[in-house]
């Protein structure tokens, strides 16, 4: 099953199992079925519950908030995560503040296609987790596997807080795995997991970067005799501090890698966490790998050098191992 198919399956089951669920977004209905086809076939199977919206990200989100407060479990599809910046106000100031202000939960799910693809350019490739995760009240998750795409979407709808669900566009069609939801086990929504065990250093990643991290770990093992542990954050807000610190306690060295911009965000938060609470475990300073501090370039050659990849992680790990 492909990553995208797992999302579509989860959506179909959510619609079938829970009458409170509806999906609202641009171009998601009819034979078109969404810019990435996540909802293909769903509007026909569930008439009136998969609704095309105008290009109005702010009001789409406000509408979802109102529906959620009236008892529904709305799922909003933003065509690209980049455009959710238009909905920033409703997401952070409204959805994020409702529970604290009123004591009532606001269970909306914002599905955000994230991450870079060659030729996508500055406004179709962004990672929104840094700006979304700063505000109290929002949950921000970033599934990296087929199973997580399926289970975390279902868990996001079960969660009573507003959830930003980051779907990596490159993984939609490029990630495929054997997956049977009837037998697969899955951890809770906020739990980080160890994707690969290792002894010498920890690589923390999330979303598409997890695959660069596991590929780098394989190279480190085979070519350099370095045993790297890979921690997939899964949920970047809140952080599963326990799993991160437990891994660091085993390895003593840590790299935190992300496709996002370098200032702030989950990589900075994990670095701060290990400095504050894991200092005694550290055998070397924590290393952050993030995208370059420019808008995301259009040209494939520039794009390829804008964010960390397998080689960048391997290089950083070799330096770190020498420390």
């Amino acid at each position: 099953m492909k990553y995208l198919e797992a999302i579509r399956l989860a959506l179909a089951e959510l619609l079938a199992d829970d009458q409170r669920v509806f999906i609202y977004g641009q171009d998601i209905a009819g034979p078109f079925g969404g810019a990435f086809k996540a909802t293909k076939g769903l509007s026909e199977r569930f008439p009136g519950r998969v609704l095309n919206s105008p290009i109005s990200e702010d009001a789409m989100t406000g509408l979802a908030i109102g529906a959620a407060m009236d008892g529904m479990r709305p799922i909003v599809e933003y065509q690209f995560a980049d455009f959710a910046s238009v909905a920033f106000n409703q997401l952070v100031n409204h959805a994020g503040s409702i529970f604290y202000r009123t004591g009532r939960p606001c269970p909306i799910v914002a599905r955000l296609p994230v991450g870079g693809t060659p030729g996508g350019g500055p406004f179709h490739c962004q990672m929104p987790e840094t700006w979304l995760s700063n505000h109290p009240g929002l949950v921000v998750v970033a599934p990296a596997t087929v199973a997580d795409a399926y289970f975390m979407l279902k868990d996001a709808v079960a969660c009573r807080d507003p959830v930003a669900f980051l779907e990596h566009k490159y993984l939609y069609y490029h990630l495929e795995a054997e997956f049977d939801p009837r037998v697969a086990e899955h951890p809770g929504l906020g739990r980080a997991v160890v994707r690969r065990q290792g002894d010498d250093l920890t690589i923390v990643a999330y979303s598409g970067m997890v695959h660069h991290a596991t590929a780098a770990a394989a190279v480190l093992e085979s070519d350099h005799n370095i045993s790297a542990e890979v921690v997939d954050l899964r949920c970047v807000r809140p952080l599963d501090e326990e799993t991160i610190l437990a891994s660091l306690a085993r390895t003593g060295r840590i790299i935190i890698a992300s496709e996002g911009f370098p200032f702030g965000g989950p990589t900075a938060e994990v670095a701060a966490l290990v400095a504050e609470k894991g200092f005694a475990y550290l055998d070397a300073p924590p290393v952050r790998l993030a995208a370059r501090d420019t808008p995301i370039p259009f040209h494939p050659e520039l794009f390829a050098e804008h964010h960390p990849d397998d080689q960048a992680i391997v290089q950083a790990a070799l330096e770190l191992a020498k420390y």
Binding site: G96, S97, F99, Y100, P105, P136, G137, V139, F151, K154, D155, V157, A158, C159, R160, D161, H186, P187, G188, L189, G190, R191, C235, P238, D240
Partner: peptide, 15 residues
């Protein structure tokens, strides 16, 4: 001082 309704997100799971 909790902005989230779900205090323990680690255990939030669908049925």
């Amino acid at each position: 001082w909790s902005a989230r309704c779900e205090r323990d997100l680690v255990h939030v799971r669908s049925a």
